[in-house]
Amino acid sequence: MSAGPQKIIPLADLAARVPDGSSLALGGSFLHRGPFAFVRELIRQGRRDLEVVKQSPGYDIDILCRAGALSRARAGIVAMEGNFGLAPWYRRAIESGAVRLEEHACASLTAGLRAAAFGVPFMPCGGIHGSDLAALNGWKTIEDPYGSGEAVYAIPRIQPDFAVIQANEVSESGDVRVFGTSHWDRIMSRSAKRVLVVAERIAPDASFRDQPELTLVPHFLVEAVSIVPNGAWPGSLWPDYAIDYPAVEAYMTDAPGVLADHLAAGPEVREAAHV
């Protein structure tokens, strides 16, 4: 293996690579396997004017809205889920106009990401016919150039500045392994300009060579990685831990100091203090 630059860096340095105004594709779905320690670190560093690109954001987009770090979103369905209902700070940010939304179907957002991943300016997407979303977003149809008579919507390319993936395991070189469903992480990692990763732990290089089919993102696509045990808290990371429901419930409280307390309770804070 060639000796590349050191890929494994502290979380604060990883988050520092994201400038104000960046668009971020965040991995996972709702409260499951999201890069939540990373998102909290962006807030601690005072990042502003960010964009979230994600088919099914929840806690991540909500806390970014709550901290005033977000100005734009391209999203399919936004909710806390798991009995918590709507994402309240996101909802307020849209209703007040503080955050500008480009509303998608999950699959149309995927189509836009596929266009970026495939190196083409747009991607056809099935369905959408009859939806007000098409006019709202200025989506155009194209007729099958091969004469079937079928018209499909062409979704323009969506290329996030960063994909941030929450992984179970990485190799020292930055190969990425996730267990359970990959949600949208694969297409995010292929469409973004840069890929950052937060992982629970390092696994031996040899284990990646033994089972290469488990590698979701190969190291050469990955710019840098941080190791943060419990980094998806208060969400789940299969099979290591489940949603911390009391912590989410506490986060949902609307009172002064709740956000600061929540940020202070992040496992990445304790981790950094030990370093």
Binding site: G76, I77, R91, L101, C106, A107, C125, G127, H129
Partner: peptide, 14 residues
């Protein structure tokens, strides 16, 4: 009220 949004519907319903 801002609701959750498009989700599966616009592509799956048709």
């Amino acid at each position: 009220v801002r609701l959750p949004g498009g989700g599966g519907g616009a592509v799956m319903l048709p």
